[in-house]
Amino acid sequence: MNGILAILSALIFAPLLPGVINKTKAFFSGKKGPSIFQLYYDILKLIRKGAVYSTTTTFLFKTGPVISLAAMIIVLFLLPLGGQPSILFFPGDYVVLIYFLGLVRFFMILAALDTGSSFEGMGASREAAFSTLCEPVLFVSLAALCKMTGQTSLTGVFSGIDSWIFGNHIPVILLILTAIYIIYLAENARIPVDDPNTHLELTMIHEVMILDHSGPDLAFLLYSGSLKLWIFGSVLSGILAAAIPLSPLTHFAFCIGWLILIGVLTGITESVMARLKLIHIPQLLIAAFSFSVLGILILLEEL
């Protein structure tokens, strides 16, 4: 029951997160900014419209958004939120989770290449390169968490981090949080990796890949984008919320609170940082990688 509640709350509230980020950014640049509900309006507008397709495309172009949305929903089934077990939890479920995100990437890249446009090809190429570097970081971070808690499922890991473990492993947890936060920024196409506001050549990664999508397809993509923010945010908040022992309901509220705070933090990061040069992005991701590996090393020492 609680699991279904978690999925429903994700499905309903996920589009708020980009709103929170944008509001924060607007605040920092001294503007009023769009409404926090802007993404809802955009999605509603788009699903009422028709779509235009390129004559070059095949059915794969249309599968991109569909698979993207479906995979995000299945990931929500696997993702525990607020100390509650997820609906589907089993040993190794995070592997399935990460690989479903990989499936999304596979079809998004194909959809981009399907248009035959070199702009979209460029975006696809960069997305492929950077995400390839992101995946190992996630795995190493999860491995560290697994070793820390002795659990092999995401639900087990999150409920395994109690305040005692949290207190004993603060350096490791800090490192892993930093690593996952960098991956959260990279995977969700935020500054400093990608700029969600533009699709100029210099920045084009994610935004340019979806250049040719329109109507409901674009709505699906925007929606699954916000779900992705929610998913990565929940991984972070799941670790953070474990610090204090709480009753289930407050734990849940705590998690949501952290999610919003992470959104605000993202907004701040975007406001105070410039986008990195493309050639420096691998360095950033390798840095994230070294954070997570260092986490494991320190964990090794603490055991």
Binding site: G50, A51, V52, S54, T55, T115, G116, S117, L211
Partner: peptide
Amino acid sequence: LSRQPAPYKETW
């Protein structure tokens, strides 16, 4: 999509 036309055009 059933409610709206989905025309085919060249890639932008």
